[in-house]
Simulated scan of single mutants.
Amino acid sequence: MRLRIGYRTIKTAIGVLLATSIAHALGLDSFGSAAVITILCISVTRRNSLRVSWHRFAACMLGMVISMTMFELIGYHPLVLGLFMLLFIPVLVSLKLSLGIVTSSVIVLHVYTRADASMDLFINETLLVVIGIGTALLMNLYMPSSERQLREYKRKIEKNFSRILHEFSTYIRQGDSDWTGAEISETVQLLNQSKSVAIREMDNQILKDDDQYYHYFHMREKQFEILERLMPFITTIHGSVSQSNDIADFLEDLSKAVSPTNHVPYFLGRLEEMRDQFKEMELPTTRDEFEVRSALVYMMHELQQYLLIKNTLWNEKQNNAGNKSPL
């Protein structure tokens, strides 16, 4: 069996060491609980770490105040502890502090075990919470960048888009192809994975809001939906209509231009020229020609939407000039 130790495991181990050492050095009772709180607060992103830490701190403070009051008024009895939990958990849920249920329960059990609602105990437990959460926040400052991974996803997706468009062009010209379509299913998987990584990278940004990778993959996802819609129509087009070659040439050139560079105005212009040529042509004389030309018109419409999706993103980039763009 291969033993694998990830960065989060290392952070947790270091955090446990620091929290325990600090709590022990201060002479706090139940100092090991600081380590438990640290473990609970280690998170996968910086933003989530801040959110979780606030939930746990607020829940612990609220839990101590309510539990001490109930225990002193009713008594330190298992039934009272059960009644407290019955009331306290719904309160945390209603206050949207449910992430702090486990951490606050640890602190409340200390109060119950000590059977002493003194100020010394309150200070002791507060320090345990502060040390545990503070250590976790310190550990969560380090989050490995996903920049390289995101760039690799981007490269693979663009390569697949280029291959798909090239195969569309080839099929229109030849009416047959030995293409297996593997890039279709692979692209679906790449888009799902890349968006997840992009979201995680966004959540690791605290002082800035860099979501351009997410928007990029979202754009490619919308474009890919159009490519999927085009596939059934590609199979209905063949070389019996002269305009088929124009579409094939267009798709071939488009396949070579799948990149961050904005070639959209050029290709939109070509589509407009093809539309004008279609309008000037004589009406189809056969059913076969009519069906092919109808499919070509539909394809031009979808290809225009394909390009406009990217053009929208490009304009947003220009409006946000000054921010470093990964696209």
Rank of each mutant, 00 (worst) to 15 (best):
L137E: 00
A34I: 00
Q304K: 13
M1W: 10
E282S: 14
I133V: 08
L50Q: 04
R2H: 11
N192I: 13
L121P: 14
N192F: 12
G32M: 08
N192R: 12
V36E: 08
A248N: 08
R155H: 15
T261L: 15
N323W: 13
S43T: 01
G32Q: 09
S49L: 02
F267R: 08
A321V: 05
R151L: 09
N192Q: 13
V130E: 08
S33V: 14
D211L: 11
A23W: 06
H218P: 07
M139F: 04
G181C: 02
Y298K: 08
T45W: 01
L138V: 04
R47T: 06
L62S: 03
M281Y: 01
M299H: 14
V16F: 10
P260V: 09
K324M: 13
S67D: 02
S185Y: 10
Y306V: 06
L28W: 00
T236W: 04
T103F: 01
L62H: 01
D29Y: 05
D276F: 14
F233A: 15
V106K: 00
L26C: 02
F57M: 05
D288H: 15
Y142V: 01
W314V: 15
S67A: 15
I74V: 14
E186Y: 09
E201T: 10
V111S: 10
M281C: 06
T38Q: 06
A117G: 13
A115G: 09
L128N: 01
T20M: 05
L296W: 00
A248S: 13
N315A: 15
R148L: 03
P232K: 08
L92N: 02
L26W: 02
I234M: 05
L227Y: 07
T286D: 06
L86R: 04
S49V: 03
T285G: 12
T45Q: 00
H263Q: 11
H166S: 09
L109H: 10
L109N: 12
A321P: 07
N192T: 15
E225Y: 04
S33Q: 09
G100D: 04
Q212E: 13
T69V: 13
H263P: 07
L251T: 06
H110V: 06
A198G: 01
G15N: 01
Q305K: 09
T38G: 05
L95E: 04
E225H: 07
H215K: 15
L87D: 02
L191V: 07
Y112G: 02
R220G: 06
T69P: 08
M202R: 06
P144I: 01
L28A: 03
V80C: 09
L79P: 05
W179L: 03
L307N: 02
Q223K: 05
Y266A: 10
W54E: 10
V111Q: 10
I164Q: 06
D210V: 10
Q305V: 14
L17E: 04
C41E: 02
L165A: 07
L79C: 09
A295V: 11
D246T: 12
A321E: 11
F233M: 14
E280Q: 14
S244K: 02
L128C: 05
M231G: 09
V80N: 03
I10M: 11
L165D: 07
T170Q: 01
D120T: 11
L128A: 05
K195C: 01
F168C: 03
L121T: 14
F217T: 03
F168N: 03
V93E: 05
N204L: 01
S196E: 15
V297E: 08
V102A: 12
N48H: 03
Q318H: 15
H301S: 01
Y216S: 11
I42N: 03
V108H: 03
